[in-house]
Design a protein around this nucleic acid. Structure first.
Lengths: 202, 202
DNA sequence: GTAATTTTAGAATGTGTATTTTAAAATGAG
DNA sequence: CTCATTTTAAAATACACATTCTAAAATTAC
């Protein structure tokens, strides 16, 4: 059954992913992808079919490895406001500060709605983040305000990714995040004491 | 002194701007730009030098006409929280809902930090929006919280532009915006009554 | 060890790209 | 009216691009 692949697939996808993150899909050539991955175009085409196939693979790699992992760690089924706050604060630390932004959001902005090679990965990633944030708030604050507050955080999160890519990292943004989570914690405290009061009455 | 230009420059820039908005810079070809603008490549090159020149012109056109106009109208030197809220709510109405997003933010995500042909226009646009939002909040709410709340709104605003381009317009986002402005209005009320109290004491 | 099969690198291919050139048509200035 | 200059459209150019082909090297299964 012929020889085995001699390159490290993970390493190739990692390199390709960073290259796409930096230059976008239309903005990078096969030649640049050869340089980035260390593979010849022959091998790339053999392994991934075409440029779009490599892009899809890099997207899936990114969503599985980076997005899903971060959401599990900071916005999983038992995550608290404090965990979620950490999710936001990691956006201000390595490796998110290299100025190349998030592959999913970059690709979203490049392709828009109309049939993009990134469509499924994009949808999956947005669903993960949305569900994670909404889940935490549903557990932590009063139900009437939870959806609106979750949406605010969702928008805040993606706003940060825009400024990250723009290289415009005001120090204030971190304060803005902390201040918003402080407000949510106050909300949680009120919610909890009200719950206790209700319990006593029963 | 030779003949005059026979095309409507405004109309050409408007078409080019929408084409760039839709396809990005790297994603659109001169041929497509000929179709979009109705001009032959000869005329385009004569008028704008090259593809990058046309892009710069389209960017400047967009920032001058759209961004600056909207900021003046809703976040000028005498704008209130209500005016600013309108700025946000217009993002949910025509013509911002065509799924092509904002040329400035799209281009930011395409090029990132490193020397982009959109650099000056991008910087000007971000400065306009930032200054407008911070200006309103500085006037309307208590100084200690004004910067953080302005940054929150700034991030919220750009988050909306991401979801707009993604074609993922949850109805909840509009509620999220309104709820945030309701909170800011409460903040303004407290700030004003405190100011009155202080005045009486003097 | 042999045969089948895959990977691999690099050359080859054809298409699409941005851009320049060409020459004719248009039109403003004197 | 005439001349100078510009716009314009279309053909021409040169290059970069994604992709395919080729043949050799590698390596697994038997």
């Amino acid at each position: 059954m012929g020889r085995n692949r001699s390159f490290d697939e993970t390493q190739v996808l990692e390199s390709a992913m960073h290259a796409f993150r930096r230059h976008g899909y239309a903005g990078i050539s096969i030649k640049q992808l050869e340089e980035a991955t260390g593979l010849s175009s022959g091998s790339l085409y053999n392994a991934y079919g075409d440029k779009e196939g490599l892009f899809r693979a890099a997207m899936a790699f990114y969503v599985d490895g980076y997005v899903a992992g971060r959401i599990e760690a900071h916005a999983g089924p038992v995550a608290t406001l404090e965990d979620l706050e950490q999710l936001f604060l990691t956006l201000f630390r390595e490796p998110m500060t290299d100025g190349n932004g998030c592959l999913v959001v970059n690709s979203t902005m490049e392709f828009g709605t109309q049939g993009s090679p990134a469509e499924e990965a994009m949808a999956r990633s947005f669903d993960l983040v949305t569900a994670g944030i909404h889940g935490v708030l549903r557990r932590e604050i009063e139900p009437e305000r939870s959806a609106a507050e979750a949406d605010k955080l969702l928008l805040l999160y993606h706003g940060i990714l825009v400024f990250s890519r723009a290289g415009r990292f005001d120090e204030g943004f971190e304060d803005a995040v902390r201040s918003q989570f402080d407000i949510l914690r106050q909300s949680r405290d009120r919610f909890r004491s009200r719950q206790q009061t209700t319990q006593k009455e029963e």
